[in-house]
Nucleic acid binder design. Sequence first.
DNA 1: ATAGGGTTAG
Length: 604
Amino acid sequence: MMVYRGVLKRASHHSRRLSGNVVYKRSSKTLDKFHLDKGYDQRDALKKQKRTPDEPGNPTKGFAALTRNEVLRLASVLKRCGQTKALADGKLVHAHIRRCRYDRNTFLGNWLVQMYGDCGRMADARAVFDALPTHNLHSWTVLIKGYVKNGCGREALDCFEGMQISGIQPDCVHFTCALDACASLGALDKGQKIHAAIIGSGYEERLIVGTALVNMYGKCGNIFEARSVFRKIPQRDVICWNTMIAVCAQNGHGEEALDFYNEMQCDCVKPNYVTYVSVLDACASLRALQKGQEIHATIVVRSYEGQIVIGTALINMYGKCKSLQDARNVFDRMLQRDVVAWNAIISACAQNAHSKEALEYFDEMQNNGIRPDHVTFACALDACADLVSLEKGQELHAAIINNGYEGHVLVANALINVYGKCGCLLDARGVFYQMFQRDVVSWNAMIAACAHNGHGNEALYYFNEMQNEGTKPDQITFLSVLNACSHTGCIDDGRKYFILMTEDHGLTPKMEHYLCLVDILGRAGHLDEAEGLVNTMSCENKVRVWLCLLGACRIHGDVERGVRAANHVFKLDPNSPAPYVLLSNMLVQAGRLDDARKLRGIEL
DNA sequence: ATAGGGTTAG
């Protein structure tokens, strides 16, 4: 702060001397005052003074050119403003440049664009860029970089194209920025086109370009290409390895992520704490508690445990691996906790049926002066849904609106879920229809809300709508759809959607899908078909499915089949009392009291 | 004349 303030003063002083304009002296003073107490009145005072310069007349008269050193000094001040995110100071420098009539200067304009971009003000950056009469290579670089840094991938790619249209060849910085934009947008085809342009540009050998490619392919879900690019990179550093590991972990290839982690060490590349964040992510996705604990030990040995990101990743891993106590221990040991760390513990509790505790953490974080963000609200809402607590859910909904988070997809999805679970289909619909953007989770939540409240046909309506809008259903969608079918009791629909899922969408049904279909078929009395279906299931855990069939057999009095189903459960889960209860009820109903008594004998 | 690009937690 002190450094560039001094520089700015000096720059102002020089200008005053050169231009003979008294205003600069005053504005310089005001600038100092402004720094002392940041008051808005001072800024207003400054604005008033800004209008005083002798605007009419020849700009060159009374506005002598800045010396090269003065320009460089202003540039360095702008750089510092950007680095320290000192937007207010940057604006003052901008005003100063404008008064010097240097705002059409490409060199300073580029620096202004960079400053505004660093401060997160892309609209201002763009305005400066557009006002420049001439753009050079660097003008495009700072603009594109600003867009990428601020998460505006769409605009970044537009500029990348605009630059080429205006006849400028992109260099490797532009390529990496553009790949970043594709990664954030999940724009695989654009990314592939850029890849093609990179091959033949001579930049494909560069480590950073290669890393950006691995990242782009990974973020777009094309792990095959990511791996193939990675393997072609001759000299890989730790960031490159980290990227590959992260990409595997994020795409559910946990085993492969751990393989890469081992391989990098064989390659004598020393993992850093970022590596461990992704390795923990891999353990979390694999639900590999033991491996996770092992990695935790390594983290402690290498003194990375104090990193807030590592602590958060550990909480997440333990939460996913169903070891809430380990998660709590990590959380308690953390010296510093930010909102993400609190979110992690809230989420860990909510995922492990400790929803009350999750809401306690939610209150506690606010007592600790940490403001909840959109993820916090989504996690807290998950806890409400689990508790079926409409009251708390409504309270959170009000807080969400107060904090302006109702527009977040994550939050809206969680709200639909809460209202659905609490039987408020009307409120669920209200949230759903107010959304600007919907993802597959939004549709799933809405379909589940309908199914849960017995509106099977409405659920199927949303299922059709989502496809009309171009959203691809996933396994969870089909689970809710099958649930809806079990509400309508339409076995044809049940069969139809099961086949649609497996054959048209190529999704592998999970135990829960079979469970649903067996339930639909069983309750309708299609016991033979249901049993056949269970027999086609691969090695998954079939206990619940056999139990479901057993229940159906009891309803329809099919004792022989019921005994078969019960025997499967006995074998798979010898300690479960459920099959005994169901089977003995069924035997009693069938009048086979002796058999029922015998069965009770076994049970005792 | 500028400066610099790739990885990471909920």
